[in-house]
Structure formats: structure tokens, C-alpha cells
């Protein structure tokens, strides 16, 4: 208490005590700070908070977007890779199929050609046989008639037709047998 009294006394004598407030300044000071605080709180701070929140949100969404884009790109890449390998497989399959089809066609053509050749050959052989048989039959008949005519004339013997023919056939058979044993000997 003595100290306070002494301080107050000293203050009166010289300058006012710097620790004791002047009432007018105290009121102005309190008022000023109160106004400053309310102004910052009500007018400035909402904008500050909004700016910070928007920025945070923006950065977060940008990061998320980037991550999503990266995942999408990866997915597309995988997809393309898969499709590419599918296309390669498909091309290989198509070529393989074409080769098989060509091979199949080749074999079929060859088989058919061989078959055709065989048919032609067979038909030719049959025709040749028929022609030969026909020629042989005609020859046989003509030889028979000729032989009968010659023999009739030689022996003047009248023989009936049927017997003549049998004789001729036997003769020809002998001839044939003879020719198959050795054609040159029979003919001589």
C-alpha cells in the first residue's frame, strides 16, 4: 500500500504513472479493439475460411480426379492390350483356317482328278473290249461263211447250215486255241 501511495505521489509530482490508464484512452482502446475484432470475425474471417476450405476442397478433388484419370487410362491400356492380343490370335486363326481350307480343296481336286482319270481309262478299256469282241464275232462269221463256201466248192458236198456253222465254230476254237498257244504257228 505504501508503494502504491508513493507511486501515486511521485506521479503527481512528475509525469503521470505510466501503469495507470487514462480513462478516455481506455474507452477508445477497448472500443477500437472490440470493433476490430467484430469486423475481422464477421466481415473478413468468413471469406478467409471460405477461401481456405475451397482451396482444400479444390486440391482434394483435383487429386482424386487425377487418380481417377490414371485408373481410367490404366484400364483403357489393359483393354487395348487385351484386344490387341485377341486380334493377333484371331488373325492367326484365320490364316490357319485358310490354310486348312486350301489344303482340303487341293486334296479334293486331286482325288476327283484321279477318279476322273480312272473312269476315263475304264471306259476306254470297256470300249476297246467291245470293239474287239465285235470284230472277233464278225471275223468269225465271215471266216465261217468263207470256209463253208470254199469247202462246199471243194468237196461238193451239201451240208446243212447248222452243221456247217458248228464245224466252223469248232474250227475257229481250234484256231483260237492254236493262236493263244502261238499265233504265228497257227497262222502258218
Amino acid at each position: 500500500m505504501h508503494l502504491v501511495a508513493a507511486t501515486l505521489l511521485a506521479a503527481e509530482q512528475s509525469a503521470p504513472n505510466p501503469v495507470l490508464p487514462a480513462l478516455n484512452e481506455l474507452i477508445w482502446g477497448t472500443l477500437s479493439f472490440a470493433i476490430l475484432f467484430f469486423f475481422l470475425w464477421r466481415k473478413v474471417f468468413p471469406n478467409v475460411r471460405q477461401a481456405f476450405e475451397q482451396r482444400t476442397e479444390r486440391i482434394r478433388s483435383a487429386l482424386e480426379e487425377a487418380e481417377a484419370n490414371r485408373a481410367e487410362a490404366q484400364r483403357l491400356l489393359d483393354d487395348y492390350k487385351e484386344r490387341l492380343s485377341g486380334a493377333r490370335e484371331e488373325a492367326r486363326r484365320i490364316v490357319e483356317e485358310a490354310r486348312e481350307a486350301a489344303e482340303h480343296a487341293r486334296r479334293e481336286i486331286i482325288t476327283r482328278a484321279e477318279q476322273d482319270a480312272r473312269n476315263i481309262l475304264e471306259r476306254a478299256e470297256r470300249e476297246i473290249d467291245a470293239q474287239r469282241n465285235h470284230a472277233l464275232a464278225q471275223l468269225r462269221r465271215e471266216v465261217g461263211e468263207l470256209a463253208v463256201a470254199i469247202a462246199g466248192r471243194i468237196v461238193h458236198e451239201q451240208l446243212d447250215g447248222e452243221r456247217h456253222l458248228r464245224l466252223v465254230d469248232d474250227y475257229i476254237d481250234e484256231l483260237t486255241a492254236g493262236s493263244s498257244d502261238g499265233g504265228a504257228g497257227a497262222a502258218g
Partner: peptide
Amino acid sequence: IPLSINRPVVLLLFGTALVMFVFWLGMR
């Protein structure tokens, strides 16, 4: 109630107004 204005009060009001103005201008 004494509300006399002296040099410290003038400076106080100026300082307060300055802070308010700068903060307002920066974030308007």
C-alpha cells in the same frame, strides 16, 4: 465519461482502421 481525443487516441484509431482496411481489402 471522458472521450477526449489526444495523439495516442488518434494513432489508435488510425492503427485500428488500418488493420481493418488491409484485411478487408485483401479478402473482399
